[in-house]
Design a binder for these strands. Structure first.
Lengths: 213, 213
DNA sequence: CGGCATCCACAGTGATACTG
DNA sequence: CAGTATCACTGTGGATGCCG
């Protein structure tokens, strides 16, 4: 995209990651860590493949992502964020939090992918008893495993966890509602919780009546 | 712009303010408060007038800005941010801080406007002696007056201040360097400081060798 | 399959001119 | 002052093809 040609931090940031799809690509890499071209495509429904290729080149040139050739037996190219790319996380979390208020509007035909909840979870979950021994929680949302660890601070990442203190399983939206303190919808879609409920209570915010996750 | 159609806070935020120029328009309104179409145009060098008109309609529809007809003798339309629009400030500050690291690159033919420094100043200046009586500082950068008040927290806004405890005058970039603790360039362009130097020391961060403002 | 490149219809952008 | 009108140009998204 054309540069704004303005000596202003915001304008320079938008020169680098203000293109259509660019911030969503950074979101995917923040959530997934190093991943393949095809993984990115799956996490970005609607993007044209030529656009993704072009954006990856631009983000690479901007010093936001790096491309690495994985050695055999993987034998594929892996994309991941540079340190400067990871430094975008606070800005993307702030934007995401602002946009979360708009989520209630037309969630009708919007696509939903369970791994997208990782960033909001990083914002909402706090270790409310930091002094206690670390606990781990396994989440399975729409079949997508998400690992939560609380040890003073809370870390949320994709993937399974070996011996979790508690397990939450269910449809993605309902699991997100439960974990962010929103009242879960009634009926058969209720998430199932197993194991040490106290470990969950340690990180989940106080239940709230209205939704602004 | 076409919606991303993703049930994700970040995607929804970008649906609302991810268009080209939109965030810079919000920046102008955050800095200036209510202002006229022509003021916005002057603060956004390079924007086409039809694009500005279209963006203002879109931002109005998104609930980010409101348009008000000012009564005589002003008799003009004023644009300002809604509460939801002002809620974008943390996200824009975070993005601007990230992009500030890129400012050193090609500041050659980039346009610079002194009022743009208001947002970085809001981020950099802290009241380091919150208990003491409030002080006010008048800044004149490239002829543009900027008011700084420190009373526990620091408030930075456009405009003159009546009886400042201290005054800083000079070229915009040099004034910004001085106020953000970067070593000012030598020579004739040095900003002039007058009045109570201690009031300045109260809000300026520690001098640093490298520039990352 | 993974990682693109090419082609094309269309929507968005930017410069200029013009209007109430 | 606050836009609208026009128009050449560029970017986007969908389909498809290519190549190791």
């Amino acid at each position: 995209m054309k540069s704004y040609k303005q000596a202003c931090g915001l304008a320079k940031a938008l020169d680098a990651v203000g293109d259509r799809w660019s911030m969503l690509i950074v979101r995917e890499l923040l959530i997934r860590g190093a991943c393949r071209y095809t993984d990115l495509r799956r996490g970005l429904p609607g993007i044209a493949t030529n656009l993704l290729a072009e954006r990856m080149r631009e983000l690479e040139a901007a010093g936001v992502v790096i491309r690495e050739e994985a050695p055999p037996p993987v034998a594929t190219t892996l994309f991941s964020l540079t340190a400067r790319g990871r430094a975008l996380e606070p800005a993307l979390l702030a934007l995401g939090q602002w946009g979360a208020a708009l989520l209630g509007e037309a969630a009708a035909d919007d696509s939903f992918q369970a791994h997208w909840m990782v960033l909001p979870l990083r914002h909402f979950l706090k270790d409310r008893r930091p002094g206690e021994p670390a606990v781990s929680i396994a989440v399975i949302a729409d079949g997508q495993p998400i690992a939560i660890e609380a040890a003073g601070e809370v870390r949320v990442s994709l993937g399974a966890v070996a011996a979790p203190h508690a397990t939450v399983t269910g449809p993605g939206r309902e699991v997100l509602a439960l974990l962010t303190g929103r009242p879960p919808g009634a009926g058969p879609g209720r998430p199932k919780v197993a194991g040490d409920l106290d470990a969950l209570a340690r990180i989940i915010p106080e239940p709230r009546a209205t939704a602004d996750a």
